[in-house]
């Protein structure tokens, strides 16, 4: 394997034994290690906030892949964040059933309240707002996810309650 840039080499560290064991459990599910790449990307993202260059290098080393192998997968999937996102990543569904029931109003309301447009993060790093495609919440539209948590049948009032309930 080619040597890594020094600053990345220094940053690649093992995770805690628990996280390493979690990663091992994923790898053990498949006859080919590489299959575990997406589950591991989610774990690295959870631990580091997003998938940065050091995280990519870590996965490459862990799965015996090249850096390029990992990048090409990381850049394909929209749920893999290659840039930092806020502590709370608000993802509002924009696809048809949600649009029919007022998704735009929901995003306008959040934008106004947080002072950010879709694609932006608040200066304190607390919130990122994104439009996303169909979340499979069409029957409970309009809907959003914050991180992995679903919030459905949204109204501006309900959005306020949800945002108020989030911890600092």
């Amino acid at each position: 394997m080619n040597p890594l840039p020094k600053e990345i080499e220094e940053e690649i560290q093992s995770f805690s034994p628990e996280v390493e064991a979690e990663i091992d459990r994923h790898i053990a599910k498949y006859p080919v290690k590489r299959s575990a790449i997406l589950p591991i990307m989610f774990i690295v993202q959870r631990e580091r906030g997003y998938l940065d260059a050091a995280g990519i290098a870590y996965i490459a080393r862990r799965l015996d892949l090249t850096i390029t192998d990992v990048w090409e997968v990381a850049t394909f999937y929209t749920m893999i964040n290659l840039k930092p996102v806020g502590k709370y990543h608000i993802q509002v569904c924009r696809t048809l059933s949600c649009q029919l029931l007022g998704a735009e109003k929901i995003v306008e309301h959040i934008s106004k309240r947080l002072g950010i447009k879709p694609g932006e993060t608040t200066p304190d790093g607390r919130f990122t707002l994104s439009w996303v495609e169909c979340l499979g919440s069409c029957g409970t539209a309009p809907a959003m996810q914050i991180g992995f948590d679903y919030y459905e049948n949204l109204t501006p009032e309900r959005v306020d309650e949800i945002l108020d309930s989030l911890k600092e």
């Binding site: 599910k29 080919v32 290690k33 590489r34 299959s35 575990a36 790449i37 997406l38 589950p39 990307m41 989610f42 799965l63 090409e72 997968v73 394909f76 999937y77 929209t78 749920m79 893999i80 996303v132 495609e133 169909c134």
Partner: peptide
């Protein structure tokens, strides 16, 4: 196994590529 936000992976051969750890 987890996907990561790609509609195309519902197509069965793209799903298999994704399950093998490749682009979908």
């Amino acid at each position: 196994h987890t996907g990561a936000g790609a509609y195309i992976c519902g197509e069965e051969t793209a799903l298999l590529n994704s399950l093998e750890g490749l682009r979908g």
